[in-house]
Each structure stands twice: as C-alpha cells, then as structure tokens.
C-alpha cells in the first residue's frame, strides 16, 4: 500500500510540475527535503536517547509491571472470553503498559506473544477471535502518556513550547481508544461467529 502512495506522490508531483512548468522548483524541493530530513532526524537523536534511557529504567525497576497490575480490573471486562489467569492476560497487560509509556520496541514483542496465547484459545485458527479484535482495536488507538517523537520533531522545528501538546494528545488518544473499544464490542455482535 505504502509503495503505491509513495510512487503516486512522486509521479503526480512531477507530472503536475511539468504541466505547470515548475520543474526547477521540484529539483530544489527534492534536494531541500532530503537535507532537512537528515537535519530533523539529527535533532531527534538527543531526545530519543534520553527518553529510551529513562524508559529502560522504568522497565528494569518494575514500573511497567506496576501499571500492568493497575490495568487488571479493566482487562477482565474487556476480554470476558479470556480466563483471568491465562498467560494471554498477562502479556496483553504488559503490552498496554509498555504502549502507555511509549515503549514501542518493548510493546511489539509482548503484543505478538499475547496474540500467540490468544490463538491457543481460538477455535478457528485462520479467523480472528473477539478477544484478538478487541486487543488490536485498543492497540491501534493506543493511549500514549508522552509522545516523545512528536515533541522531538516540534523541538527540531523551533517550537517555543514543544511539550504543550502532551495533555491534549492524552485526551485525544483516550477518546480514540474509548470509541475503538465500543466499536469492537458492537461489531463483534454484528459480525456473528460468537467464536472465542
């Protein structure tokens, strides 16, 4: 999909430029964009390094596990088909705690582990279970406490208050997640299959 979009941006861009006689602008834009991509990424290095260092501490000291325990009561309601003491519950909780802290790299392996454990409970192996769909709806909306890379991009672009979007981002992602959960609950009734 992304391959087509990328190609379309370039092809449509160049064709439009040819039609409007702006080809010289395109040349400058391409080189400028390549340059500024590198500059921006370099601006990102410091903040990302600081943040992932901090988050490694959060992981090592058990803060991720602690947040996981706080989420437990909510999990029972979200995944009624998954037995409370099933390993899938633990993996899903840890995955969400890692996502909450913006630990994408730690979250993905935990999420894949959770999916494998959910697959054990799944009766039709090639078809998603209700629990899987719910887990993915929550994951794709993903509440993030601090969206570090966005803050770093803002800082690199010269913002006077790069962190001012933290609060609004939390609110927007909580709303997105809540709607995702409701949608998954409603759609699982419509899409039938009652499977586990």
């Amino acid at each position: 999909m992304i391959n087509y979009i990328w190609l379309a941006l370039i092809v449509i861009g160049i064709l439009t430029a040819l039609l409007q006689g702006k080809t010289d602008l395109v040349t400058t834009a391409a080189f400028d964009a390549a340059n500024s991509a590198v500059e921006l990424s370099i601006g990102l290095v410091g903040i990302m390094t600081l943040w992932l260092g901090l988050m490694k501490l959060a992981e090592a000291s058990g803060i991720v596990r602690f947040i996981g325990r706080l989420l437990k009561p909510i999990m029972k309601r979200l995944f009624p088909q998954v037995p409370e003491d099933h390993p899938a519950m633990g993996s899903m909780v840890m995955n969400m705690a890692a996502n909450l802290l913006g630990l994408g790299n730690a979250a993905t392996p935990l999420g894949i582990k959770a999916m494998k454990e959910l697959q054990e409970l799944n009766e039709e192996k090639d078809t998603a279970s209700n629990a899987m769909c719910m887990f993915l709806a929550i994951n794709t909306a993903s509440v993030t406490l601090v969206s570090t890379s966005v803050i770093a991009f803002r800082k690199a672009a010269g913002s006077v208050a790069p962190a001012e979007i933290i609060g609004p981002t939390i609110i927007a992602s909580v709303i997105g997640t809540a709607v995702g959960i409701i949608a998954a609950k409603i759609l699982e009734k419509i899409s039938g299959k009652g499977g586990r």
């Binding site: 192996k125 090639d126 078809t127 998603a128 899987m132 769909c133 709303i175 699982e188």
Partner: peptide, 19 residues
C-alpha cells in the same frame, strides 16, 4: 497466521477517525 481479520480493521479505523 490469522487471515480472516473480521472486524479488527473497521474497529481500528473507527478508532482512528474518532482520534
């Protein structure tokens, strides 16, 4: 190896639009 994703995509996209 799940191929039939049922309502995962629509639920995810509804969450995106809401966000």
């Amino acid at each position: 190896g799940v191929r039939k994703t049922r309502h995962a995509v629509p639920a995810g996209l509804i969450a995106d639009v809401a966000g």
